[in-house]
Every structure is written in C-alpha cells, then in structure tokens.
Design a protein around this nucleic acid. Sequence first.
DNA 1: AAAGGCTTTGCTGCCGTACT
DNA 2: AGTACGGCAGCAAAGCCTTT
Length: 500
Amino acid sequence: MVSDSVLIERLRQILTVSDLETATAGTVRRKLEEELVVDLLDRKAFVRDQIDVFLRTHVQETPNDDVQEVEDVKEEENGDSCSQEEEEEEKESVENDDNSSETGSKKKARRSEKVNGEEKRKGGFYKPCALSPQLQKLVGEPELGRPEVVKKIWAYIWEKKLQNPQNKRKILCDDVLSGIFWAKAIDMFQMNKALSKHIWPIDEKDAAEVKSSVKSTQKQGREEGENKLLEVQKAMLSAFSRLLCNFLQVDFRIPNNFGFEAFMVSTRMEGRIEGLEKTMGKVQDEIGSANPTKDTDMMAENSYNRRSDEFWEVRPQFREETRPRRLELPLFSSDNPYGWLNRAERYFHFNGIDDKEKLEAAAVCFEGNLYVVLMGLQQTGSVAQYREDFELLSAPLKDANDAVLMGIFTKGLRGYVAWTRRLCRRTRPDTTPVRTLARNSSQIRSNESGDVDQHQEESWLPYRKGETGEGRKSAIVIVVAGGRVIVAGISIGKKENSDL
DNA sequence: AAAGGCTTTGCTGCCGTACT
DNA sequence: AGTACGGCAGCAAAGCCTTT
C-alpha cells in the first residue's frame, strides 16, 4: 500500500512533465500504477482530486505569469510585498468587477487598452488577409487585417470628405471607392459587406501554393486539368454574369478572382425581372403612343424585338432596317472562353439581339459544358455564396433532373461527407418533422442522385434532438436550379443557417 | 447602449458514443 | 450507471461609424 504523500509527490512529478493539453486523469492514474506497481482503481477519486488541486494551482500561475512579473517589479520598487492570499483576493475582486458592475464601455475600453498595450495581434481579427488590387490601391498594402482595412477606408473617407453631409451614414464614392463598392454611394452599414468581396484569407492561397509545390509529377496533369477547369469556370461565370448584368441592368462586376456579387438569389432576381418587365412595358407604351423622334427611334433600334405591333405600324420602314440577319452563335468553347465571349458579343451586336435574347442564346451555348463546370464547383466561402454561384451556373439547365442537381450541389458543399455520416447515425425518422414535410411535399426530393446512395434516405432529412424547437444543425436548403425550386433537408453550419 | 455588417479563434457547454 | 472523450453549436472578442 502506497501512502498518500508518496502518491501525491509522484503524481505531481508526472504532471509536471506531462502535456496537460492531452493528459487525462485515466492516463495519469495508469502511469502512476505502472511506476508504483500498485492498483489504484479504488483510489481513482483521490487521484482525480489531487490532479484537480495541481491543475488549479498550475492554471492560476500560468496565465498570470506576466501579471506576476509586473507585480514582482512593483513589489521590488515599493519595497514591500503582500501575501499570496491578498493577491488572490485582489484577483477575485477584479473578476467580480468584470462580472457585475463594470459597464460595457469600460470593458470595451479595457479591451482596447489591452490591445494597444500588447504587441499588435496577428491572429483572429488581425489575421492578415490578401486584398484585391482595387483595395490594395486604396490602403497601399498587399495584405492587412480586416479591422485595419476598415480603419484605412474611414481615414480615406474623412480625408476626401466623402460622407453625405445630410446623412452621414451614406458614403459618396469617388472613382477609387466606386472601383471597390461598384456603386456611386454606399450605406456605411453595407460597406463591410461589400469589403468582404475584396478581402480573402491568405491561408487558402498559401495552402494552394504549398500544395502545388509538393505535387508529384504524376499529379501535375490532374492539377493542370483542375486549373483549366477553374479557368473555364471563371470565364463562363464572367461571360454569364456580364449577360445577366446587361439583362438585369445592373453593374457588370467581377469583384474577385471567382466570386459573384450576390444579386443572383432567385427571389431577388425574379423581383428585378418583374420590375424590369414592368418598366419595359411602360417604356414600350410610351414609345408606341409618342410621335417618332430621332431619340425614340434610337431606343427602338436597341430593342427591336421588344416592340409592340402598334409600334411597327407607326414605323414600318424601321422594321426593315433593323431586321436581324442570320448568323450562327458559336457554341461555348472551354478552350477559348474569352474568344467565345468576343464572338458572341459581335454576334449580338450584328443581329441587334436584345438583352433577354442574349441571355437565352448564351444559355443554350453553355448548356453542354455546364454539368462539367457544376461538378467542379466547390464551396470555398459561405454556403450562401456557394448556393448563389450554383444557382447562377445551373440556371440554364432547364431539363436537368432535380435529384442530379441536388446531388451535385451537396457534393460541392464543404464537409458534406462528415455531416451525412453523422446524420445517418442520429436519424430518427418517425419523429422528424422535416421528414414529415418531405413526405407531404412534392417539391422535396430524397437522395436519388446516386452519389450518396450508400447512405440511408434519412440522411437527407436530418434529425437532432430538439430540432422541433431549434433545429440547431439542420435546415431546409432551397436551391433554384434549372429554373426550378429544389428543396432538401440538409445539415449546415451556424452562420449559413442564419442566412436561410 | 444597441443596431448593422463582416471576419477568425478559442472557450464553454451540451450531446452521443464507447468503454468500464 | 458512471465516466471519458470527441465533436459540434453558440458565443464573445476588436474594429469602424452614426443615428435613435
């Protein structure tokens, strides 16, 4: 039988040299048993208590090392010292202040002091991010933490006096700012959102560089293929978004190396189309009823196909002049996407194609390649961004099978495999409200897509205890693909969740 | 003081599973 | 049944500003 004192002494020795991040009560106890050649099963509680005592003293000492050093210096300066008990009381009182009486602003001030006092942090918020060329131009640095970018932006706004005097929340964009925000004015609350399009994590870039440098020659071909696919994706996204922007009468923009502005969510898009159609209808009526003038004729020339019969009755000669000539629009070529874009634009110009027709014609040309591109699309940012990209790309696939589209969509989701596995384990079909919804709704598809057929059908319809009330991890995802609404039960992260 | 946006990191607490 | 552990969700943190 080993005495308590011997046990404690040896225990402390073990803990001193152990990695406290990984050591557990069990591993420590087993080590003790091994070294002292005794069975400590009946003294488990004692061992755990002693570990707790050690950890309490250790943990108190470690994070306050710096404070302790400062206090030591003070003590030396003052020539006196207070007892450990008094120190502990002081610490406690500080903690109590923190928890109860201290106001938010004081806390904030204290935090700020802390940040200013310490060496500028490099992680967390201050983690340097890569900046877009437009943003680099403004802040004068290739990489910067987000808060510092915001600081510099505000400094620029003040310097140039770009706040609207009537409403200081509005920022009037000069050339530099409009190059970043793609607007003539922007609400300051929207500013950070717009900025996020220009701030990219460096890790991904670094990781990609490291990855590519260590790739074996065998993998190089595949990588080149992926790069090419990415190039094609970019080109198609660029071309397609340009057409869409023309159609929707919004600014054409390719804000970063791959991303889209988030105008493509179907509901918003439908709203814009509706609005656009109404406006066009009004313009059409006005043109139809007005006397022909040079200006209105020019407007009419630009929208040959949108004119009413009444309009042509007034200007029969104009119909002859602007009749589209026959010329084939080339199919999209992944070998030369920019070349295709050029030729397509010339074709549109030559035939006087209006915006809606441009969109439809381009969609037909894209269709063959779209599955390939869609398959290559991966979630790199938020689910919402990924969904929007997916919706944009899949929009022309009107004949596509919903389940296939949903399968491709989920396959590109980050962490997909992990959550489907977990969901398979935890599914409780009979009590799942989502499942009930799925059975009753013709819009909801189960996993018929094949790419996840190793999972139970329930894996599409996630369940987690308490879901009825909170649905902590699960949500219904609605994807607009191929012009149809596709709904699926899905498990997603917390941030994405809020976006739904 | 809260609101509104966004970012990453790390802590806490909860839950489920595996093991004793 | 109790315990240990893994994994995940939720939250808070700094920074910026003006209006209510």
